[in-house]
Design a protein around this nucleic acid. Structure first.
Length: 524
RNA sequence: GGUCCCAUCGUCUAGCGGUUUAGGACAUCGCCCUCUCACGGCGAAAACACGGGUUCGAGUCCCGUUGGGACUCCCA
């Protein structure tokens, strides 16, 4: 049996990091099983359509390295002209993308898409006839019925039930309607929906992750299958499509667990085989609630913009809810494909631990060559007004590589290299712990200036050590009493790379300029 | 409220009845390196929610309690 899985996002804007993990788990499982992954667009809620969302989704999947076998693809032309995600051949982002997505009710929302695969269309709004057909079949078989209740009546009913502390459920008012009344209502064009008729009894199923699960159907509501606008709800569309697309494994978030019995009943009512279910644990906020935008970043686009590397983000989210047996944290995509196991997926939700992501990102940054890193950092620099091309850029980046956690921090760490003049914060020169006061700073800088002026070797930081440390010896001071003022003179920062490295990166001329300008500031 | 799911360090997790004085990673703290910060090295502190069973033996199996979460929309 060929494994067929699917990832069916709703195009409502940005890509949620939890969705990306669901997509990743589907991908890992499918790749390992040598199966097929289907992408399906679940756009059955007309009110939540967001233009550009599908495009954004497909680009994000591409960025993440998640390949699929069937589903919508961007037309070639479109990729070239409108691509706002640029990736190099390693799949790393080379230019931050914009997250602008605007509401748009254009009819040709999907004009820039084509499809691959033999089970299409892969966009649910283009499959409306199919859902109607099966809804009709359900009605004929007595598993569904028309409902003409108004929103007002339903609301009233719900209020009453709530005040009686009952579970809010449809009271099957319209189930009592006879054929004639229904036909009349339909003829008159009264707004209606089609509801699923849930039978009495228990529905049980096996979940790969959770094991045996049982639901009493009495507690299940008669779910709406077709909305009054003619669109299906998730429940119907999902079951119909999964069946028609021959999906074998439904791997989705835990939030779907409570509605799974409804889905199972639909499969049974239509006489279809059940897929195998696997309900993934939720990604959580620090307060353990479902991961949401309110409590931090959840959009994959935001992580990309902030400068998280593809491999780091993938590695990190793969380990949120799953881990192989060994004591290892760093895995490539291929490692993950090889080692992944649905059976080892955790049952409990996982808090999204941003500190660990930062650490992991720094690990991946350190693995990059300077050239690769520069290619990633330059786009961030280009957004700064002070940026201009500089032949020494690789030298500069070399100095910050070890301290960089996310790429967007780079401009702040490199700024002083690009400014013509620094506006010194004089208090920075003084440092009690270093035993440096203003006079000491002035004195040290003066000696440094005089010494370095006559020094010719600037190639390596080692070249500067001997002359500078000879000053320390001569003045009988501590290293820090010379080097602290020097660093402030060179950077106007309290934290920075080492002084010798800075001098070497600046070169003689620029170094001496910084030092004399600092001296002038201190003297004034 | 109802239904379902879940429960090992602060966080992500290893553990699938005895190999456990419960292992790793992030974060925290200390020491070393050192001109600061970071990196790196070494080390410390830190968990089986609780109560009953089953068993010669339970973090591991069962039941209950407590706690948390999801769902309960003409959202997905």
């Amino acid at each position: 049996m060929t494994v067929i899985t699917r990832f069916p996002p709703s195009p409502t804007g940005f890509v949620h990091i939890g969705s990306l993990r669901t997509a990743l788990y589907n991908y890992l499982f499918t790749k390992q099983q040598k199966g097929k992954l289907i992408i399906r667009i679940e756009d059955t809620d007309q009110t939540r359509q967001v233009d550009g969302a599908v495009e954004n989704l497909l680009k994000t999947l591409k960025w993440a390295g998640i390949e699929y076998d069937e589903g919508p693809v961007l037309k070639e032309k479109h990729i070239v002209t409108n691509d706002h995600i640029f990736t190099n051949d390693k799949g790393q982002i080379t230019k931050p993308l914009s997250t602008d997505v605007k509401n748009n009710k254009q009819s040709d929302m999907y004009g820039h898409l084509e499809e691959k695969g033999s089970h299409g269309p892969y966009i649910q709004s283009k499959r409306l006839d199919l859902y109607k057909k099966y809804a009709q079949e359900l009605i004929e078989k007595g598993h569904a019925y028309y409902c003409f209740c108004t929103k007002e009546r339903l609301e009233e009913m719900r209020k009453k039930q709530e005040s009686l502390k009952l579970a809010p459920q449809y009271d099957r008012f319209c189930l009592k309607l006879d054929k004639k009344e229904i036909e009349n209502n339909l003829k008159k064009g009264i707004s209606c929906v089609i509801r699923q008729k849930i039978p009495n009894g228990n529905i049980e199923f096996n979940d790969i992750i959770r094991g045996h699960v049982t639901f009493a159907t009495q507690t299940l509501d008669d779910q709406i299958l077709i909305k009054s606008d003619g669109f299906p709800t998730y429940h119907l569309a999902n079951v119909v499509d999964d069946h028609l697309m021959e999906v074998t494994h439904v791997i989705r978030g835990e939030e779907w667990l409570p509605s799974t019995p409804k889905h199972i009943h639909l499969y049974q009512a239509l006489g279809w085989n059940l897929p195998i279910f696997a309900h993934l644990p939720l990604l959580l906020n620090p307060d353990k609630s479902k991961l949401s935008k309110r409590q931090g970043d959840v959009a994959v686009e935001e992580f990309i913009e902030k400068g998280y590397l593809r491999d780091a983000l993938i590695n990190f989210i793969a380990l949120l809810g799953w881990h192989p047996t060994e004591n290892e944290e760093i895995y490539t995509l291929n490692d993950l494909i090889e080692k992944f196991s649905l059976k080892r997926v955790q049952k409990a939700g996982a808090v999204f631990n941003k500190e660990k992501l930062d650490w992991m990102n720094s690990v991946y940054i350190k693995k990059l060559s300077i050239e690769e890193l520069a290619q990633l950092i330059v786009p961030y620099l280009q957004k700064e007004s002070w940026y201009r091309e500089n032949p020494n850029i690789l030298k500069y980046i070399q100095l910050i590589r070890e301290r960089l956690k996310i790429l967007s921090e780079a401009p702040g760490m490199l700024k002083f290299f690009f400014l013509d003049h620094l506006k010194y914060d004089v208090t920075l020169f003084e440092n009690a712990k270093m035993k440096v006061d203003k006079n000491m700073a002035k004195n040290s800088l003066q000696f440094a200036n005089d010494t370095l002026k006559n020094h010719e070797f600037w190639e390596k930081d080692e070249d500067l050590k001997v002359p500078l440390l000879s000053i320390v010896e001569k003045l009988q001071i501590k290293n820090g009493q010379l080097l602290w003022p020097l660093r402030v003179a060179l950077t106007n920062e309290a934290f920075s790379p080492g002084v010798f490295e800075l001098l070497a990166a600046y070169g003689k001329e620029k170094s001496l300029q910084r030092i004399s300008e600092a001296l002038m500031t201190l003297k004034s």
